[in-house]
């Protein structure tokens, strides 16, 4: 087997954990517990074998090392995980290759839960959530496509049917009940 070629995309580099100087004040002893609370497994059982990084398609493109991120989580280096929370493609290859059954992809998902609760919400999350409340779908309907639908004899997207208003009301009720509207900052006028 030849060596795998890494072609990094600029601006998305980070250092190896081993190269960093860690200050004790940066350590959050409750971080691992918090990850468990949001559905991640116990990061303390990670063996640091590095299989997850080896199979990660993203790690070939940016200096994103799943193993290092799990290490940061063990140390409680909360701020170190900030830049890499939204680059995981959730392909779950790491899960299939993890001998300690950590499921690193689910740890990334738990980190995202923590991020939005810290108020770090990437715009695409807000857009998709707003689309869901407004149209019942996370993708915004498109006029041109609707024309082509009609040409094909498919009829309107069901979002536009008057009967769908009831569905939008139900979605609003559920999103309000789980306080997702407040969490993500979906504007009040969008809610039915």
């Amino acid at each position: 087997m030849g060596e795998v070629e890494k072609t990094f995309i600029s601006g998305l580099k980070e250092e190896l954990v081993e190269e960093k100087v860690i200050d004790e004040s940066q350590l959050d002893p409750n971080f691992a517990k918090e990850i468990k609370k949001y559905g991640g497994k116990d990061v303390m059982t990670c063996l640091q074998c590095g299989n997850c990084t080896g199979v990660c398609p993203i790690s070939l493109k940016i200096d994103y090392k799943t193993r290092s991120i799990i290490k940061y989580c063990q140390f409680g280096l909360r701020t170190y995980t900030l830049g890499t929370r939204w680059v995981c493609a959730t392909c779950y290859r790491c899960y299939e290759h993890c001998p300690a059954d950590i499921n690193p992809a689910e740890v990334m998902i738990a980190l995202r839960h923590i991020a939005v609760r810290e108020g770090v919400i990437p715009p695409f999350i807000k857009v998709a959530a707003t689309n869901l409340v407004r149209y019942g779908q996370s993708v915004k309907p498109d006029e041109e496509i609707n024309k082509i639908r009609k040409e094909l004899g498919l009829g309107d997207i069901h979002t536009f049917s008057p009967d769908f208003k009831k569905v939008l009301r139900e979605i609003s009720v559920l999103i309000h009940a789980s306080k997702y509207d407040k969490l993500i900052g979906i504007e009040d006028e969008v809610m039915v």
Binding site: T90, H113, I121, I125, A128, A129, S138, D163, K166, S178
Partner: peptide, 18 residues
């Protein structure tokens, strides 16, 4: 006709499982 978005895992499962 009452089906909505599944909802998309990359958005909803990623930010609030509930």
């Amino acid at each position: 006709p009452d089906f909505s978005c599944c909802p998309v895992p990359g958005i909803f499962y990623s930010t609030d499982k509930e």
